[in-house]
Structure formats: C-alpha cells, structure tokens
Nucleic acid binder design. Structure first.
Lengths: 158, 158
DNA sequence: TTAAAGTATAGTAAATTAGTCGGGATTCGG
DNA sequence: CCGAATCCCGACTAATTTACTATACTTTAA
C-alpha cells in the first residue's frame, strides 16, 4: 500500500520546481542533486509529466523545466495520478481497468475499497503545490535566522 | 498504491467467517472454494491472523477457524494492518520503520503522507465485520426471492 | 486407526519496481 | 561554426516483492 518512487520522487521534484519558480528553467541535474534522486530516472518521470502538461521543457544550453501552470493550479492529485495511475487500493475501483468485477453493486468489499479510494482522493485533490510552498516557507521562517537557502531540501527518500 | 493479496484475500476470508459465524468452525478449504483463493496461501494468512488473535483455530477433523471476537468488535483496520503492516503511502509515516527521516518536522511531503495515511485509517478503523455483514444482508434482501444461499460470495479477485 | 483438519517453514516463479545505458536532437555562448 | 549543456527516447537489467507451492509435520473426531 505504498506509493512507488515514481509518485514520491515526482512530487518532490515538482515541489522543487515550485520552490524555484522564479529562477527560470531548472535543469534536471540541479533537482537530482538537491533531492538526491538519479538524474536519468528523473528524466523518465519528467517525460511523463511533460506529456501531461504538468511541466514545460526548454531545450538546449540553459534549458530545463518549468511548471506547466501556476503552483496554485497544480493539485498533487494530478501529479500522483499522472505518475502512478489512479490511486486505489484494488483494481476493481480504478477507472482505468474497470476490470470486470461482475455483480459489482452487490460486492461489499468493493464498497470498502471505494471508501478508501475516495478518502485518499479527497486529500490529494485538495492540496496544491502552492499550499506546499506556503507551508514550507512558514516552517522556514519559524526556524529563524539560521536558516540557509536550501533549508527546504528534502533529504530522505520517502 | 494497491493493497497486496494478503490484505484483500484476508479481508474476504474474514468476511466469509463472519457470514458463517453460526456454523461452528469453518475449514479453510470451504473458504478457499467459496472465495476462489488457494488453500495453502490462505493457511499462511490465517497463521498470521491467529497469532494476532483475530481468529481461533480448532484442530483435527471437523476443525476449522472461528472469529476471535464478535464481528462488531473486529475492525477491518485490524485485519488489514495485521496482514499488511501499517497502511501508509511512504515508509517515513509508518510506526514500524520510523525510518530515520531527519528533520521530519520540517518535511512538507511528509505532512502530505501523514494526511493520506490518516484519512485511510479513519475509514478502515470505523468499519467492523458486522457492518459488512449487515450491508450484505441488506443487499441480498433487496434482491428478493431469487437470492441463493451463496449470494454474498465474492467472485472477483480484488 | 485413519482421514480431516491445522501448523510450520522453506523454496520458487512471476511480476513489478527502480533504476541504468547509449545514443540522439536542440540551443546557447563564444 | 563548435562544443558544452540540456532535453529526448527507447531498450535493457538488476533487485525486490509478491503470490504462491511443496513438504513434512501435529492434532483430533469418528
């Protein structure tokens, strides 16, 4: 019942972009360094995110990636779903593989999976990247003067 | 982000026991047949459930398994957690492997994982086996006279 | 005594995950 | 125009996890 690294790394990388929005295009190696994620793996993830319009790319020297919309328009649900597919505890409650669960209406466990799915979606579809950025800045300001530029960097791989 | 078969099969098997509570000990091969789950795999799951006290076993001929408590005392959260460990989208928000996420308080993604975890737990810790049984009987009664004894059997593997 | 059950542990095949690798195609700065 | 910095693409692979299977018990009712 864990998210895969796709979703977890992807969210961190998008959050990284949001924190650096004003800096122009951010090259992947910067994100990879800051977040301690393999650059070539990130390339895969960003290819997916780009197809979905969640990021824009700028090719060539001094290129990099930009958010595809303002941080307050990007919900983390979009990010996670793009990278992981529908978030659900069982296949029979994913839109994708509507997986012929015959008699679905009469299936009590299905009702449980639906409730779990819906409660997850309610969380991830109510938080934007902007929310995350604001929360991070609040945390940093509370830490006071000894906060460095990279205080917001997420070090662990979760 | 799917539950494994351990949790999914386990819940169905426990629900099966709850539906048949009055029948005395239920042997695993009955559950395996009804639920279309490998019997030897179920054995493994029931070994875990037994250690946790969620079921009691009766050995020997005419033996089988009984619920370890009344259906209204068994929350599906207990079942899922016993078989899957803490339900959480990332390791850093599991009680089990408190996995040294240094600076955890300052980690914004962690806050998201916590919210997801909590919303899932709220669902699974508010539903009992009795709730499931009641809901199933309600569904069956609505279907009217043409309902057979095994109308509640879950056929799909989700 | 025998057959129907549970108990325990090890092994294994399949699937998924989490990457790596190699070679392009673009673009900027000099 | 050249070369370095970048994104782009697809195939490949290693590691892990999952989902069982197999084997060899022990216990108990009839």
């Amino acid at each position: 019942m864990k998210l895969s690294t796709r979703g977890r790394y992807g969210l961190r990388a998008m959050f990284d972009l949001a924190m650096n929005e004003s800096q122009g295009p951010i090259p992947l190696n910067e994100i990879a360094d800051r977040q301690n994620i393999s650059e070539s793996y990130l390339e895969q993830l960003f290819a997916i995110l780009r197809r979905e319009g969640l990021v824009n790319s700028v090719r060539g020297a001094h290129g990099g990636y930009l958010l595809g919309a303002s941080p307050n328009e990007i919900y983390i649900g979009q990010i996670l779903r793009t990278l992981e597919g529908d978030i659900a505890p069982a296949d029979c409650v994913r839109n994708e593989d509507v997986a012929g669960c015959m008699d679905a209406d009469a299936c009590v466990t299905r009702i449980i999976w639906e409730k779990i799915r819906d409660s997850i979606n309610q969380v991830i579809d109510s938080i934007t990247l902007e929310d995350m950025v604001n929360q991070q800045r609040l945390i940093n300001s509370k830490k006071g003067s000894n906060s460095s530029k990279d205080d917001w960097v997420i070090r662990c791989n979760n």
